[in-house]
């Protein structure tokens, strides 16, 4: 029996235009058998959560390289909870100082992947931690 495909929203919160990582990972996730929706740039937390709801997503992947992660990432988790989407796995990546990671994890971001992370580590983490609905 075929496994149900993991559905992932790849999102760029805020005004940051660095989308090399987001686009690259979108392709890698698709090759790993996931169903990928890339939101494009300039997403507010509300837009991202709305996309997760509409798409019935299992995972939200957030990418930020402009230093706004401490504001945006927890906000996305908070809004997901408000929409009763606590089951959605939230992961993040970008230019994120190591010392910020404990706070982000406490806020509900499952994992943060910094520059240089092998892509199969990210794929492996998602597959191992995605929650069944």
């Amino acid at each position: 029996m075929a496994e149900k495909k993991i559905k992932i929203i790849v999102a760029k919160p805020g005004l940051d235009g660095h989308d090399r990582g987001a686009k690259l990972l979108s392709r890698i996730f698709a090759e790993a058998g996931m169903e990928v929706v890339y939101t494009g740039l300039r997403q507010t937390p509300e837009m991202i959560v709305e996309a997760a709801l509409q798409e019935d997503a299992d995972v939200v992947g957030l990418s930020s390289l402009s230093g706004v992660h401490n504001y945006f990432f927890p906000k996305v988790v908070e809004l997901l909870k408000a929409k009763k989407l606590s089951n959605v796995l939230v992961v993040g990546g970008g230019i994120i100082p190591l010392e910020d990671i404990p706070t982000l994890k406490k806020a509900g971001i499952a994992e943060i992947f910094g520059p240089g992370t092998p892509t199969d580590t990210i794929v492996g983490f998602i597959k191992a931690n995605v929650k069944s609905k």
Binding site: G14, L15, F72
Partner: peptide, 17 residues
């Protein structure tokens, strides 16, 4: 980024930036 994207610092899209 708000200046580059043509928004004032108090625009909703400038939050956190």
């Amino acid at each position: 980024l708000p200046t580059q994207a043509g928004y004032d610092s108090d625009h909703p899209l400038s939050m956190g930036e």
